[in-house]
Structures are given as structure tokens and as C-alpha cells.
Amino acid sequence: MKKIIPILLAVFIFSCKGNAQKENQQQSEKEKFEINKTDKEWKAELSDAEYKVLRKAATEPAFSSPLNDIEEPGTFVCAACGNEVYKTKHKFKSGTGWPSFDRPIEGAVGLGTDNKLGYQRDEIYCARCGGHLGHVFDDGPRETTGKRYCMNGIAMDFIPDKK
């Protein structure tokens, strides 16, 4: 019994410290974006599906996005703020079920860490509003960047080039 009390006390102390650091990190992350809105404002502006992906980092079902089939020249923009994030010329068919690109528009996205599945992944978010867009993997086309920016189609809109 004497051994259990110090262990429980240590677990409690470290868990409190971790949560406080996490809250401070989340607050500083929010402050670094050009567009900052409350959760209530995002919910009012986005559809339920967009909100879940962009603000809560959910993942849309594979093969559900009409953006998978777009091949015409244009720009993919963040559905939350309109930030230009990808060009069609950098899109490729990955076979994964999500729109995939070998590179973003320079400065358009940021990288974070996602451990939700029990292992570390590189999360992609909009550099302008912080909206979750997807993840990046090292299994893209070797003849270009070798990267696969695997995006949630619901997190983007498509604007065709003017002819």
C-alpha cells in the first residue's frame, strides 16, 4: 500500500502539468494565425462536416470527395478561409481515396504533430486560419518531391483557372 500512494501521486502531478502545458500550447497556436475565430463562430460558418474536419481534425471517408476527380487547371483553397493551398498541376492519383498533392503552394500550409492513432503523423493545417487539412507522408512520387500531401476534400474548395 505504501508503494501505491507515491506512484498515484506522481501520476497525478505529471498529468496536471501535461494538461496545463497543452492548454498553453493550444492558446499560443491560435494566436499565431491571421484569422482567429471562436469555436461558436466557426460552427456558424462551416457545415457540420467541414467543422468536424477543419476544427476538430476528423477525417472524411475515403473516396467521398468530388475533388478526387478534378484534373482541370486551378487552385484548391481552404474551405474555412479561402487561403490558396494547392495547385492542380501538383495533384496526382494516389489511390488512397483522398485528394493528394506532391507539394503545397509555398507558405500556404503549416506542419504539426498528430498522435491520435497511437503513432506520430505529420499533420497539415492552413497557415492562415489553422484549419486541419490532412497529413503528409513520404510515399509520394519519387520523380518529384517524394511527398504525398493527403488532404480531406471537405476541407478545400476548388477554383478553376480563368480561360
Rank of each mutant, 00 (worst) to 15 (best):
E106K: 14
P73Q: 08
G95D: 06
M156G: 02
E123P: 02
R142A: 12
Y51R: 03
F101D: 01
N36K: 08
L9T: 13
S64G: 09
I5A: 05
V109A: 11
F14D: 04
K30Y: 02
P61R: 04
Q25N: 12
V85H: 12
G107T: 13
K162A: 03
G118V: 13
Y51L: 08
C126Y: 08
I13R: 10
G18K: 15
E29H: 09
A20S: 11
G107W: 07
P104D: 05
A49Q: 11
D139Y: 02
D138V: 14
E71V: 14
F14K: 00
S100L: 13
A20G: 13
L9W: 12
D139W: 03
K3N: 07
S94F: 11
F158T: 11
C81H: 03
E31D: 05
E84H: 10
G118M: 05
G82A: 12
I4Y: 07
M151L: 14
C81S: 12
N36F: 10
N152P: 09
N115F: 12
N68R: 11
K89R: 08
R103V: 14
K116P: 07
I159E: 00
P104Q: 09
A44T: 10
G130Y: 09
E106N: 10
T75W: 01
T38R: 01
E123M: 03
S65G: 05
L111M: 15
P104N: 04
M151W: 05
K87R: 15
A57T: 02
D139V: 10
S28R: 06
G153N: 10
D161C: 03
D102Y: 15
L8R: 09
K147M: 02
D69Q: 05
K87T: 09
A79V: 15
N19R: 13
Q27F: 06
D122W: 14
L111A: 15
G112R: 13
G18I: 15
D139S: 01
I7T: 05
P104K: 12
F33H: 13
E29G: 09
F63V: 13
L8T: 13
D102N: 04
Y149R: 01
S64Q: 01
A49V: 15
I154K: 06
D122P: 03
Y51A: 03
K40S: 12
K163C: 07
A62V: 15
A62Y: 03
K17V: 15
G131T: 14
E143L: 00
T38K: 08
N152S: 01
R55S: 06
Q120L: 03
V11G: 02
G140N: 00
E71Q: 04
K89F: 06
A57M: 08
K91A: 12
V53D: 05
L67V: 15
V11S: 00
G97C: 11
Q27N: 07
I35L: 14
A79W: 06
R142G: 08
A80M: 03
